[in-house]
C-alpha cells in the first residue's frame, strides 16, 4: 500500500483540471494556496455548489459548507433531526465546525484514502454534492431565509 502513489493537493489539482468534470465546464476549479493548499471546486451542474478538497498525508478530505448555525431556527430540533436521519446520506458525514471568525457552520464531508484512484475522488465529489443538495432539500424546513 505504501509503495503506491499518494495524492498531494497539487497533484489532485492537475488531475481534476484535466478531468471531464472540469473540461466539460460542469465545474470550475481554483487552487487556494496557503501553507496547506486547498482546492475550491464550484459545481455549476449543482447550482454552483462550492466543494473544498485537500490531500494531507494518507487522507483526502472533500467538504462542503451547508449553512451557518445562525440560519437554523431551532438548533436542538435540527441537531436531533440530523442524527436521526444521518444514515440516509451514505458515505457523507455532517459536522459542526467553528471557523476562525468564531461563527459555527454545519458542513458535510467525506474522507478517503490518499491512495484512492482519481475515479474514486471524482465519485466522492459527486456523491458529496448530491448528498449536500438532498440535505438542503430535506432540512430546508429548519432553515430561516437569509442570514
Amino acid at each position: 500500500m505504501n509503495d503506491k502513489h499518494a495524492w498531494t493537493t497539487h497533484a489532485l489539482f492537475n488531475a481534476l483540471s484535466r478531468s471531464t468534470l472540469v473540461v466539460s465546464n460542469q465545474a470550475s476549479i481554483e487552487l487556494e494556496e496557503g501553507i496547506h493548499a486547498t482546492l475550491h471546486l464550484t459545481l455549476h451542474s449543482m447550482g454552483d455548489l462550492p466543494v473544498f478538497i485537500t490531500a494531507e498525508g494518507e487522507q483526502v478530505l472533500v467538504e462542503s459548507l451547508l449553512w451557518p448555525q445562525a440560519m437554523v431556527k431551532d438548533v436542538a430540533a435540527f441537531n436531533d433531526e440530523v442524527l436521526a436521519t444521518h444514515k440516509v446520506f451514505p458515505l457523507s458525514t455532517i459536522s459542526l465546525d467553528t471557523l476562525a471568525n468564531g461563527e459555527r457552520y454545519y458542513t458535510m464531508f467525506g474522507a478517503l484514502s490518499a491512495f484512492s484512484s482519481l475515479d474514486d475522488v471524482l465519485f466522492e465529489i459527486e456523491l458529496l454534492a448530491d448528498n449536500v443538495i438532498k440535505a438542503a432539500d430535506a432540512y430546508s424546513t429548519f432553515i430561516s431565509e437569509g442570514v
Binding site: T9, E32, G34, H36, A37, T38, H40, F52, I53, T54, A55, E56, Q59, V60, L61, E63, D97, L99, A100, F109, A111
Partner: peptide
C-alpha cells in the same frame, strides 16, 4: 486536512 479546508 480539516484545518486546511476550514482555513480555505
Amino acid at each position: 486536512a480539516t484545518e486546511s479546508v476550514q482555513r480555505a
